[in-house]
Every structure is written in C-alpha cells, then in structure tokens.
C-alpha cells in the first residue's frame, strides 16, 4: 500500500518528489525481509522506498524468473544426473524464494510485479537449443549466476532505501554462492584477484 505520510522529513519528501517518485511505506519495505526469511533488526527501522525502487525490484524479479526458467530447462533436459541435478533443484528453490519475496514486496509497495515468460520463451532467450551436455547446462547456469550476482551488486547504489540495498546485497550473496558451487562442479579456478564481483 502506498503511503506518503509519516515516513520522511519535509525536506526529504521534497527531494524525493521529483521524477515521478512516490515515497512508499517503510513497513512494506520490510516485507521483503520477512517473506524470504531475511528478517533482521535493520528492517524494523526500514527507510522509505520509492517507486523507483519498485522499478529496480522488478528488474530483480525478471532475473529471478529467468533463473527459475533456466534451472527448469536444465532439470527437464535429462542431461543432469545427481548430484548436479540435486544442486540445480536446490538453487532453483532459492530463486523461487527470491521471486516470492520480490512479488510480495512489489505488491505491498503498490507496484505491479513483472510476469514470468513461458519456459519455451526462456529456452529461446537462453539459446537452450545449443545445450547438448551436462557441462553445457552447468556453464549456462554459471554464466547466469555470475551475471545475477554482478547485477544485484551493481544496482545497490540505485536504491533510495538502504534496507532494500541491503536485501540486494544478500541476494547477490546467494547468487555468488551458486556461482561458486557451479564453478567447483565445473572444475574452474576461482578468481585470482580480489574484488572480482560487482561494478
């Protein structure tokens, strides 16, 4: 529910009033934490989010929809065997948790959650026709997880709400965990240099 009251000082409201931004309820911001088990003391004092933040959350939701679709394609390909299949199903469940939290939060903030494409559409977008082996599946997942980790880190400065920025960092941590596990499964070396993630 959009609320423009009790959230910001007059000066802050004036600052955030431009460019079509709408100040949104702090309680709604906290929903993302609660919906995905992200509860932390930080969310009890969540700062105001804006409609611009909702746009960023929808970008994140698009990434989560695609990740779920990608793992579905991989799982249904018949190319993955345990333990890789088990790993893929686990990671997909993480992305479903992210998706559910984002959808709930976008709704509570008064936005419209981006709808998922069909699995067939994701297959076309991701070039699934070229996937022939289990390594191809894992490499695709690895590439998407790296991109998602960097995307979540890269959008942190865009959030008006520091609490949503923290959530983005936590989502990035999940994606980094996935990328690291997939890199291990593929036998890839970890980055030699520090600070290899993020913009």
């Amino acid at each position: 529910m959009i609320s423009t009251s009790n959230l910001a000082s007059p000066a802050r409201r004036a600052f955030m009033g431009g460019a079509g931004r709408t100040v949104l309820s702090a309680a709604a911001v906290g929903l993302l934490a609660n919906a995905a088990g992200f509860g932390s003391p930080a969310f009890a004092k969540a700062k105001a989010a804006t409609s611009a933040d909702v746009d960023v959350l929808n970008v994140a939701l698009g990434l989560e929809h695609e990740a779920i679709g990608a793992y579905q394609i991989g799982a249904e390909s018949g190319l993955l065997k345990p333990p890789a299949l088990k790993l893929a199903v686990l990671f997909q469940s993480h992305h479903k948790g992210h998706r559910d939290a984002l959808v709930a939060t976008i709704g509570k903030l008064g936005g419209t959650a981006l709808a998922a494409k069909t699995t067939a559409e994701y297959a076309a977008d991701l070039g699934a026709a070229a996937i022939k082996t289990d390594l191809d599946v894992l490499k695709l997942a690895q590439k998407l997880e790296l991109g998602a980790a960097n995307a979540y880190l890269g959008v942190i400065p865009s959030f008006e709400s520091r609490d949503l920025a923290q959530v983005s960092a936590r989502l990035a941590a999940d994606e980094t965990m996935h990328w690291t596990a997939l890199s291990g499964a593929l036998g890839d070396m970890l980055p030699a240099q520090p600070l290899s993630f993020g913009a």
């Binding site: 970008v59 698009g62 076309a124 977008d125 590439k143 998407l144 991109g147 960097n150 995307a151 890269g154």
Partner: peptide
C-alpha cells in the same frame, strides 16, 4: 559484458 550485462541483456533476444 558477459560478466556484468548478461543478466539483463542478450545479443539477439530481449530479456529484462
């Protein structure tokens, strides 16, 4: 591009 842009963009398909 492959590390930072690919989450949202593809060369030949519209994504996010």
């Amino acid at each position: 591009w492959e590390a930072k842009c690919i989450a949202c963009h593809a060369l030949d398909a519209n994504k996010v």
